[in-house]
Write a protein that binds this DNA or RNA. Structure first.
Length: 276
DNA sequence: ATTGGTTCCTGCTGGC
DNA sequence: TGCCAGCAGGAACCAA
């Protein structure tokens, strides 16, 4: 499940390998994913040179010179596969491919693969985040959020803090796994009303978010089912998860069992003794 | 306005 | 051992 660290890992891998390459050919094998691909996708980016790859929340952005940027979201099961020739035939879930060529003639094929098709590929005209409705509404990046910033976006909210962290308009890029982990690191109950997080807890939660996300990026993300780095390598942060997926196991702090319950249709993992 | 519930989709898992 | 129901979840959408 790609969250911020997984998308960051993918973007770092892409940046290192495709910057300077030119889009040679665009092949869509279906009309779209969650949303239709732009009708004129191929015409608008063909021939354009990749100048940068960046991330906003869980979105990746491939920046092109003199063309709209390519915006992508990996949804639940999406991954990006980058491979040199000879290109194997596309698999059943390889929905879109960009064939790239460098100035020296090197070739790479960039494939959007997404079995569950919760992902998205769109264009970002002008390259400015505000130009896209899905980016415009996003909250602050949690990777470098401060306690006061976090407290400000949580203020007045009656929803449980866990639900608030998953709301991309509150904080952008946190998903179910890292929400659980950050709350555990901060020793805050997932049931606590967001608005009751005061300065001390906000400081702890901001630190929990920053540290868990940075640690996960360092480990190449978490590979539970679907995530892979560019080139197919797994991420390893799932080994360092302290509560997510560990129902019944001993809490590392107090040795009492980690509990699981459903919150807004999502599984929440926590230690009822440590988290208040 | 905010919040909670439902839906999309396929692959994996667990219980029989 | 094999089958299949149920679960996994990001976020748009809808209803309250």
């Amino acid at each position: 499940m790609p969250e911020l660290p997984e998308v960051e890992t993918v973007c770092l891998g892409l940046r290192a390998r495709v910057r300077g390459f030119t889009v040679d050919r665009v092949t869509a094998r279906r009309p779209g994913l969650r949303f239709p691909f732009p009708a004129d996708l191929a015409e608008r980016i063909a021939g354009a040179r990749i100048t940068a790859v960046r991330r906003r929340a869980k979105y990746g952005i491939i920046v092109l010179a003199d063309a709209p940027a390519v915006l992508f979201h990996l949804g639940m099961s999406g991954r990006i596969v980058l491979e040199p020739p000879p290109y194997p035939p596309p698999g059943p879930h390889d929905h879109l491919a960009l064939e790239l060529v460098s100035a020296s003639g090197a070739q790479l094929r960039l494939t959007f693969r997404d079995p569950r098709r919760f992902g998205l590929v769109d264009l970002l005209p002008g390259g400015a985040d505000a130009a896209h409705p899905r980016l415009r509404e996003l909250g602050p990046e949690p990777l470098d959020i401060t306690g006061p910033e976090l407290r400000a976006v949580l203020r007045g909210r009656a929803a449980p803090i866990k639900a608030a962290l998953l709301d991309q308009r509150v904080v952008a890029g946190v998903g179910n796994i890292y929400a659980c982990e950050a709350l555990f690191r901060a020793r805050i109950s997932p049931r606590r009303r967001a608005g009751t997080v005061g300065p001390r807890r906000a400081e702890a939660l901001a630190a929990g978010l920053r540290s868990v996300l940075a640690d996960a990026i360092r480990a190449g993300g978490s590979t539970l089912r679907d995530h892979a780095q560019i080139g197919g390598e797994a991420g390893w942060f799932q080994r360092e998860l302290l509560v997510y997926g560990r129902a019944g196991e001993a809490c590392i702090a107090c040795a009492r069992p980690i509990r699981q319950f459903r919150q807004g249709g999502r599984s929440t993992f926590h230690c009822p003794a440590c988290q208040r």
